Amino acid sequence: MTRGSEPARRGSKLRAAAYFCGAAAGCLLIVAVVVAIALTADRLGGGVLYFAGLVAAQLVSQPIGRHVVVRCWVGFKRTISADGWSALRADPRPPVLYLRSFLVDDVLARTGETAMDYFRTEEERLARAFAPIGPLVAVGRPGEALPPAGAPRVYAGDDWQRIVSELLGRARLVLVGAGRGDGLRWELDQVLATVDPRRVVVLLPLTNWEYDHFRSGVADLFPDPLPDLPPLPDGHGIRAALHFGEDWTPELVPLTIDRATSLETALLHHLAPVFAHLDDTRAPARLRRQRDLRSLTLRLAGLTLLLTALWGLLRVFVLR
C-alpha cells in the first residue's frame, strides 16, 4: 500500500507540550479555586459558609474541568496519536475497519458525562470496545489539521478507493458509521459485495429523521429493508446499531447509554452475536468487568459526595 498525504505535523511537539501544559494548568486552577473558597469560608466563621463554600467550589471547578482540562487533554492525545499505517504494522492481527461519513467525526468527538468518560471521546470508547478483536483504523479526512482522538487514521490520498478495497479484504470486522455522502454509499456497496454479513456492524449516530433519510438513500443496496428506528433519548452519539444474519437479514439494537451503562458495556451486551461469530470468548467476561467497574466507580463517587455532605453538616451544626 502507498501512504497518502497526512496532516501537517510541523510543530507537533510544541503543540503537544502546549496542550499538556494547558491540562496541568487547569488542574492546578481547580485545586486553587477549591482551596481558596474553602479557606475563605472557614476564616469567615465556618458553619453555613463552609458548606456553601464546598458547593461553590464544585460549581466553579466543574466547568473549568470540562472546558479546560478535558479539551486540552483530548487535544494532547490528538497531537501524539499514531497514524493508521503504524498501527497496522505494530499489530499483526487483522484490523477492525471503521468506515463512515466524515460528518460523523464531529459527533463522536464528544466526551462522556461521567468521571470514567470525561477524558475519552466516544470514538475512543468505540476503539476500546473492539480492541480485543483487532486494531481499529479509519480512513482520514483529507485536509484535516489533526486526526480525532480514537481510531488511528490511514491517509489514502486520491487512491482511497483502492486502499479501502484492500483494507476490506484484510479486515476481521467492519464498522460503518451511518451518514450521507457518495463516498460512504460506494463503501457500503463494496462492503455488501465482499464482506461476510456477520462481520458487519452499522452504527447509528443519527436522529430518527436522519436515519430515515439514510435508510431511503441506501435502500437499493441492502437485500432486505432496514428496520424502523424506535424513538430514543438524545444525549449521546451512537444511539443504536445494526448487525446482520448470514443472508443480510438486519437486526436493530438500541444502545441505551446513561451514567450506569457505558458505550463499551452497551456494545458488548447488544452485539453479543457479532462477538460470538468472531470467536471472542472473552466478551462475556469483559462485559461483567465493565459493569462491575462502572458500578464500583459510581458507588465510590456517591460515597464521596455523601461524606462531603455529612462533613459540611457537622461543620454547620456541631463544630461551629
Results as ranks from 00 to 15, higher is better:
R180S: 15
L204M: 01
W209C: 00
L221Y: 09
V201D: 03
R198P: 04
G237C: 02
A219G: 09
V253M: 10
D247E: 12
D224Q: 11
H236Q: 00
F214I: 12
L204R: 09
L192G: 03
F244H: 08
D212I: 03
R215L: 01
T256M: 07
G179W: 05
T261S: 09
L221G: 10
R198C: 08
P233A: 03
L184D: 08
T207N: 04
R198W: 07
W186R: 06
T256H: 14
D196A: 10
G237D: 04
L221V: 14
S216C: 00
S262M: 06
G179A: 05
A241D: 01
E264M: 08
P230E: 09
G235W: 09
P223D: 01
A178M: 03
G245I: 04
D220T: 10
R180A: 14
A178Y: 14
P230A: 04
R185G: 07
N208R: 15
G181F: 13
D220A: 15
R215S: 11
L204K: 10
L221T: 13
T256C: 04
T249Q: 13
Y211V: 07
L192W: 09
L255D: 08
D212Y: 12
L267P: 03
V200D: 01
D220P: 00
T249C: 05
L229E: 10
L188V: 02
L242Y: 04
P231K: 11
D212T: 10
G183Y: 00
T194K: 13
L188R: 09
G217M: 07
V191N: 12
R259N: 15
S262I: 06
A178P: 05
G179P: 04
E264K: 08
P205Q: 07
T207P: 02
R180G: 15
R259G: 15
A193N: 08
V253W: 01
